[in-house]
């Protein structure tokens, strides 16, 4: 049971307008049958100090990752998680969060691994909702658990592993980290904790496009023309390109994956979630330091 799409003019310019909803659209539809609103934040307690009425919380650290292996949930675990949040396979899921929807986009990407069809982002996320003075509550959502089918995760379409990236070298790569991480001055985002990588720099030939460039100052996505100017004109991406995006652990690059796939319509975009914490510690993979993209290593 899918909830009608947001017909906003701004979204119509994007390749897949059905992937976004506006704060206004959401405010008018809270509580509508078939709609589940999900908050996904960097700060694990942010939901508790106030969230959109009826929204459930999904935490990327503690709920989307396997607790032991560095991997995402299995089909069984994902089914149990979504069922417990009251999300059915045919639910319309609208995800929002802090920091320009950084973690919300990550959650959306994980939902995509399991082929959840109707999953959308709230344009502007948590900050815009609050800035507009819209309603918040601290009352936890009342959830009626439902059955979610066990669907095997598909890692072949939107996810890239290290071996895939090695084979991909020569095709477009987007490094969405900060300029300091790209050049090799540091291995972690400014003001973020060290997550452990033994080498600094970037994957040879990767273009540097910090993820937040896709966001306007109010946290909404930039209009289509501005996004085209960045990713097509500046970086040189073309329609049929196969593209891999990466960051440090795959969360910031989920945001860029969303932009390239759903807003700009590139059809073969993968997110390398191993990202720099894997690449920067792997043995004998090529690395480039400095501001230039660098040359492909001889093979």
């Amino acid at each position: 049971m899918s909830v009608a799409f947001d017909p906003a003019e701004k979204f119509a310019e994007y390749a897949h307008p059905e992937r976004l909803v506006s704060t206004e659209w959401l405010a008018e539809r809270l509580g509508e049958p078939g709609l589940v609103v999900v908050e996904s934040d960097e700060d694990v307690l942010l939901y508790e100090i106030g969230h959109i009425p009826g929204a459930v919380k999904i935490d990327w650290h503690t709920e989307l990752n396997d607790p032991v292996v560095r991997d995402y949930l299995s089909g069984e675990q994902f089914a149990a998680l979504l069922g417990s949040k009251g999300i059915a396979r045919d639910s319309t899921v609208v995800i929002y969060g802090d920091k320009n929807n950084w973690w919300a986009a990550y959650a959306l990407w994980v939902f995509t691994l399991f082929g959840h069809e109707d999953v959308r982002l709230l344009d502007g996320g948590r900050d815009l909702w609050i800035a507009e003075g819209r309603e918040l509550t601290t009352a936890p959502a009342e959830v009626t658990p439902v059955e979610y089918p066990v669907v095997e995760r598909d890692d072949t379409v939107v996810r890239a592993f290290k071996e895939d990236v090695l084979a991909h070298l020569g095709k477009p790569l987007i490094d969405v980290r900060s300029p300091e991480e790209y050049s090799g001055e540091r291995t972690t985002a400014p003001a973020y904790p060290e997550e452990g990588a033994l080498r600094a720099g970037h994957i040879p030939t990767a273009a540097s496009v910090p993820w937040a460039r896709a966001a306007a100052s109010d946290g909404t996505f930039r209009p289509r023309a501005e996004l085209d100017a960045i990713y097509r004109d500046e970086v040189g991406l073309e329609d049929d390109d196969e593209i891999v995006a990466y960051c440090r652990i795959g969360e910031r690059s989920s945001h860029t994956w969303f932009v390239l796939t759903h807003l700009l319509g590139f059809e073969q975009v993968r997110n390398y979630d191993g990202s720099w914490t894997e690449w920067g510690s792997a043995v004998r993979v090529p690395i480039v330091t400095g501001e230039a993209r660098g040359e492909l290593p001889a093979r």
Partner: peptide
């Protein structure tokens, strides 16, 4: 570690 994640707990260590 389980409730918040080990990575976040590192902030407190700092």
């Amino acid at each position: 570690g389980q409730a918040v994640s080990p990575l976040r707990v590192r902030g407190m260590t700092g």
